[in-house]
């Protein structure tokens, strides 16, 4: 059964710029998909629409059989979608562990439990010695690993990643990809990653190429 179904999705900005043009695709649970395409091809717009951050101008997005437009946004972002941003979007004044804890705030009432879960995740990605370091003081690779932990903290059904290695050097990218690949295989999670990096595409089972807002292969 398809976890994600997109039917004739279009997104037009200001009535002029057509970022997405009649995109339809289906992704099954446990699948890992790379969205490839040049800058401006509509990859990020498509991820934003799947995540419910943006509304399509036309068409329907269904996740787990339910249209995204009818889902309660808070619950949808807590339980179904995890999002990994290119710019990490960490709260720089907070420690690594506090950043991960933020994702658990709506789902786990006990601070102690949130703390322990967050520590466990960070240790799993090799940041056990950086738990209490402020995010601002971490390297790019470390920051993206914290962001990854935050995105999977609630064990989402669908992980969306927008150019996750876009701001990383080669070594950090490699490390992050290995962590992501391990996680996806061990949890049989579903991943859609927007990238123009072939190395990222290699960890995915399937690639979809976008060009001028259309699926071309």
């Amino acid at each position: 059964m398809a976890l994600l179904e997109l039917q004739n999705i279009s997104r037009v900005y200001g009535g002029v710029i057509r970022a997405l043009d009649d995109v339809s695709l289906s992704i099954t649970a446990g699948e890992t998909v790379a969205l490839l395409g040049a800058s401006g091809s509509g990859k990020s717009t498509l991820l934003n629409i799947i995540a419910g951050f943006e509304t399509p101008s036309s068409g329907t997005v269904r996740v787990a059989g339910e249209p995204v437009s009818t889902q309660q946004p808070d619950k949808f972002h807590q339980n179904i979608i995890g999002f990994l941003f290119q710019q990490f979007n960490l709260l720089d004044h907070l420690s690594a562990v506090r950043n991960v804890e933020l994702a658990l705030f709506p789902t786990c009432r006990k601070a102690q439990q949130r703390y322990l879960n967050s520590c466990k995740l960070l240790k799993e990605v090799g940041l056990g010695d950086r738990l209490h370091s402020r995010a601002a003081l971490l390297s790019g690779g470390e920051r993206q690993r914290v962001a990854f932990c935050r995105s999977i903290a609630n064990q989402p059904q669908l992980l969306l990643a927008d150019e996750p290695t876009g701001n990383l050097d080669k070594a950090s990218s490699k490390k992050l990809l290995s962590i992501v690949a391990n996680y996806m295989s061990s949890h049989q999670g579903t991943l859609i990653v927007a990238t123009h990096d072939d190395e990222v595409a290699k960890i995915c089972q399937r690639s979809i190429r976008l060009e001028d807002g259309r699926v071309v292969e």
Binding site: F53, P73, D74, F76, H77, Q78, L102, F105, P106, R150
Partner: peptide, 16 residues
């Protein structure tokens, strides 16, 4: 704004 928007993206309700 961005920090609070990130919280919303993580499933924090507007009320929270």
């Amino acid at each position: 704004r961005q920090e609070l928007a990130v919280l919303r993206a993580m499933g924090w309700s507007a009320t929270r």
